[in-house]
Design a protein around this nucleic acid. Structure first.
Lengths: 209, 209
DNA sequence: AGGCGCTTGTGAACGCACGCACAAATCGCG
DNA sequence: CGCGATTTGTGCGTGCGTTCACAAGCGCCT
């Protein structure tokens, strides 16, 4: 498979793709292209995806349920090792073969399962507390679906996924298509990074801290 | 509120924030700062968030359920106007006050509700067909949660959200923290853009087309 | 065996975004 | 009324990512 084919499939420039791959080493053959299977192995190795990491999911509301049942995690080398919730009514429920445990059980489970990554799917109000608990048990990577900014100590990685922001971006493009307002579409605008996004409700207090 | 305060709250540089805001016009007061309420109004106006757009959600599996019940959409100015699924068993189910309709009803509903944005939460195999149907009824903005690359005509915006990729990025950082491999952390690597991501399974056929 | 076409890997240039630093402007206080 | 403190708005330099373009290398066909 040529870099041109890979690039068009991925929707990027072929030169960029080649340069990226060259960082891994020379796994292509000139005049022929790349061995896709070998490439995948190498990428997985360098990215550390060969080891199946254990993931703890906190918050089994609507979103938590969906994440717990999401096939994409298992097929990409992640093992959801435990489900937690703070609501006693939800504790004991079984989802996809896993029983929801109370979030206070986290220290015990984390030690037993060697949790590497924590996923927060709680309401925004509970997110910071959960993050603190995760950090306390040694988790250094957090995926945050709650619409709020988490403060964590140095050395802990937080990635925030705000589903509404994706819609807002689409809405903005829709707006531009309609009215031909020529606002320079600067790549990563700080605007979308504002806590609470652009919601009128409670943005004041979110910023005012 | 000073730009410094806004910037630290958003986690960005204050100069960048001021420059971004300056694109909207001069809504700050020197020596004083910004009127947050006014700022929000202006940003919402420029970004076109003042009009509540109608969203159609296709695919009410685990993820679809979560999205249909997600408060963040409504509070950010989006109205989920209709739910669709191809599975007759799911048609008729009521979620959050909306009844799931068969995807073949899309043309009729789209005309009645003036759908602006389509959200695809179907399995990957069905995503392209749904995208085609959305495009056919005049939808020009698509948010795709299925782990596949959609091909759409010019003028249609597609944003892809792959939840597993977020975990992979965290996993990679975790990997780097463990072994101190010095791989240049190039900003937007093409690797993560590969269709099918880094999954071993069926990547071959995904690329081989 | 030799040449030819195709593809990789990479040096170099372009462009863009980020951040610094400063002039202009506003408010408060003496 | 004037001065100093504070903050915005922005010109400019720097660094990085992307892209072009080309030499080196590989396989195939004759």
């Amino acid at each position: 498979m040529s870099s041109e084919g890979l690039a068009s499939a991925a929707g990027v420039n072929s030169a960029k793709l080649r340069k990226d791959l060259s960082h891994l080493g020379s796994y292509g053959t000139r005049g022929v292209g790349y061995d896709v299977a070998l490439l995948i192995d190498q990428i997985e190795f360098v990215l550390g995806l060969t080891q199946r990491r254990a993931v703890a999911l906190v918050g089994v509301g609507n979103l938590g349920h969906a994440l717990a049942g999401y096939d994409g995690f298992a097929s990409r080398g992640f093992r959801i090792a435990a489900l937690f919730d703070a609501d006693p009514a939800r504790v004991g429920e079984e989802i996809n073969g896993l029983v929801v445990q109370h979030v206070d059980e986290l220290p015990r489970v984390a030690a037993a399962e060697s949790i590497a990554i924590g996923v927060i799917a709680t309401p925004a109000a509970a997110a910071q507390r959960v993050a603190d608990q995760l950090v306390a048990v040694g988790v250094t990577s957090i995926l945050n679906f709650a619409p709020c900014v988490l403060s964590v100590p140095e050395g802990v990685d937080v990635r925030k996924v705000d589903l509404a922001i994706e819609l807002q971006i689409l809405s903005f493009h829709e707006h531009r298509k309609a009215s031909l307002t020529a606002l320079p579409a600067t790549g990563g605008s700080a605007l979308t990074a504002l806590p609470g996004g652009l919601a009128v409700t409670d943005t004041q207090e979110a910023i005012g801290t």
